[in-house]
Design a protein around this nucleic acid. Structure first.
Lengths: 144, 144
DNA sequence: CACAATTCAGTTGTGCACAACTTACCAACC
DNA sequence: GGTTGGTAAGTTGTGCACAACTGAATTGTG
């Protein structure tokens, strides 16, 4: 056998595992809201500021229309969101929150704290992890 | 608007973004080998030690048979892997590397280094990130 | 030995990701 | 005013993840 890379030494695998473990902790809580994790992310963006175009959402989340279009249709079917063609620019679709979508935000308040509790890391460590991951993501995007 | 969680403060989103950014950096290199990222992970495990049962692979990678069964069929279609029913226990399927599968490992040697170069973090920081993520993943798994 | 409980791999169905493509629309230039 | 280039959203197709289930094989227990 050659000096093939070892699984347990790979940062990439550590990221992949941690990310799946974190969404697995979120899943049962989000199930209570009727949302998947990516749907929750879209709602987070809209709770901050709405309406938003599909492209804007994609830039915030790093997702393209191939992912967002069907996801937004599902949110619309749940009556959390409304899609309206813009009058000024018929290419654009503005995503508005419905009353139900707006109301859902209060039920989502405690979710991130629950992850922090389950993480087994101090607040300082969590904060440092977050900023390190931010730098890493930016550098990886710049690298091509 | 209530005090809804902010997207940019969430460790979970930072993990999700970093993980996707890292696999995006791997993707063009793995394309050269004809592999997807999860397929590459399976090959990594097999390069370390083979044959392995489907369940063993699942435990190393945190994936279930619903993910692995079709993935392994695709690796078999690529002639990198062979699936053999165990004689002793007819429930088990042993995954063996083919000659081509074994040969592929030498072409995969440089891949993790490329990620390290693109990461924009020092070796120390990368190492610390890896161990922090390992602790986080373990704690999240323990939390339920 | 009989048979209930467990284990293993596989299947089915849903929902992302992402590449490649399509369609509709807009804007700039001739 | 028509053409050309670019942009926004949507569609199609592939491959994960993961829950729920199936069927076959094995193990544990009375």
């Amino acid at each position: 056998m050659t000096d093939a890379p070892r699984l347990d030494r790979q940062v990439c695998f550590a990221l992949y595992s941690a990310s799946r473990a974190a969404t697995a902790v979120y899943r049962p809580m989000l199930e209570g809201l009727g949302l998947t994790y990516p749907q929750y992310l879209v709602m987070l963006v809209l709770w901050e500021n709405e309406p938003r175009g599909v492209k804007e959402l994609g830039e915030e989340l790093g997702l393209d229309s191939g992912t967002l279009s069907p996801l937004l249709k599902r949110l619309e079917a749940l009556d959390l969101v409304e899609r309206r063609r813009s009058g000024e620019d018929e290419r654009r679709v503005a995503i508005h929150l419905t009353a139900a979508g707006r109301a859902l935000s209060s039920r989502a308040t405690g979710i991130p704290q629950h992850l922090a509790d389950a993480a087994g890391l101090s607040p300082d460590e969590l904060e440092q992890l977050r900023t390190t991951l931010g730098r890493l993501t930016a550098a990886l995007h710049d690298s091509h």
